[in-house]
Design a protein around this nucleic acid. Structure first.
Lengths: 222, 222
DNA sequence: AAACCATTAAAACGTTTGTTTGAATCATAC
DNA sequence: GTATGATTCAAACAAACGTTTTAATGGTTT
């Protein structure tokens, strides 16, 4: 519908990947059928199996196509931080920005498909399908370990379990902020009152506030 | 498997609801079939349609069974806060506890099924299925509005959009903390080094830190 | 022109899906 | 005991699922 009906500039493979990315984001893995994908991509039904083998291998390729690049960008940002610091300890806020800010900048790219992909990724963190989760964990392993190590060094006085938990909380807040169509979004009218580009600074200040919160307080003042 | 094979104490309806709750949590809505539910519940295949009509009405009842009670508890906690305050402004931390703490206490009830349900609920916030989302939004509408109003009053100097966003972020962090099987959980070995009951204080301090974070900072110190 | 390989096309494969049917079974009321 | 209404049961339904098959097409190389 978006391309010329006959021959297309982009080849069949990338058209399938684009259609799959969008449909998996909208309807989930089990909720998206092969026929939905091929009809949206404007290709024959058998094309998915021909080019990717199975439905599982297709979604695997949908993720790998962008996730590899995202995590490389994150690691590059962290490496640059470490190079600039030249041995002196890193600011936690810089580490957080290297990880979450990089993802948010990808999510800000609407036309290039980065936004769609980040929505898909955020939803997939709670995706029940076990095969998808295992694949994601492998793809993330190195990057997460490097960032955790950096945070441990930047905050030597904080218990490592606490850092781990707060990283977990930050992942949730970000995924949700991008992908979540939750009660709030539906009840209050989908945040249409503001420029969506303001999400990044809002979220970053929230994340840093949570990261720096005093430990183990429960019934505090304020 | 858990009950006597023949006649059961709990009636068919509740056995189906319990099985559905667990399976929807584990495999999602589209990933759970009627046959999975009925065989796990130990009832005939036609029992679901007989007692609930359709699969969609079943999951609707799975949610309503517990969600109504959860939101009533939240509203009751808020009402008690307002009664105790007797006109004076409420502490934001108390409001946050009335909303998120109540949910966390439900999630701590493992044997009664509260934990399973909270996992299901957290995952459903990013559930693509549109029908499920619409139902959840209606079920949540009143409770969310009441709590937002309370937060607006408690923080009159803060921009309301900012409060709305931070409520959104807090929802994400909590849902994720309970339901998320993300990269972290899989990479680092599922947080098995600590008593899971410590989740609540950890999360509450993180949420309050984020809520109180200075506004619109982006490249701050620390 | 002929041969070759990669790609596309239409059709069918066997399963599984949610749902419905009609008879069998049960408890209770008459 | 017999009738009644609710529930359970085995069986079947059409539709949709992921995948495979076989032939047709297109471009490139001999």
């Amino acid at each position: 519908m978006s391309q010329a009906p006959g021959k297309t500039a982009g080849d069949t493979r990338s058209r399938i990947l684009d259609a799959g990315e969008r449909l998996f984001m909208e309807h989930g893995f089990d909720g998206t059928s092969m026929r939905m994908i091929t009809s949206q991509a404007g290709v024959n039904l058998a094309a998915v199996n021909y080019h990717f083998g199975t439905k599982e291998l297709l979604i695997q390729e949908v993720f790998r196509r962008r996730l590899t690049h995202l995590n490389q960008s994150r690691l590059a940002a962290l490496a640059q931080l470490e190079a600039e610091a030249a041995g002196s300890p890193l600011k936690p806020s810089r580490i957080v920005d290297a990880f979450f800010g990089t993802a948010l900048r990808m999510a800000a790219d609407v036309e290039g498909g980065g936004h769609t992909f980040m929505c898909l990724l955020g939803r997939t963190y709670t995706e029940p399908n076990e095969f998808v989760r295992k694949f994601l964990a492998e793809e993330y392993a190195e990057c997460v370990e490097r960032f955790l190590t950096a945070l441990y060094r930047a905050l030597p006085e904080v218990d490592r379990n606490e850092i781990l938990w707060r990283f977990h909380f930050m992942m949730g807040a970000m995924s949700y902020a991008i992908a979540g169509t939750d009660a709030l979004q539906l009840v209050t009218g989908k945040f249409n009152d503001e420029n969506p580009s303001r999400l990044a600074p809002r979220l970053m200040s929230f994340l840093l506030g949570g990261l720096r919160a005093p430990l183990a307080e429960f019934s505090p003042l304020n």
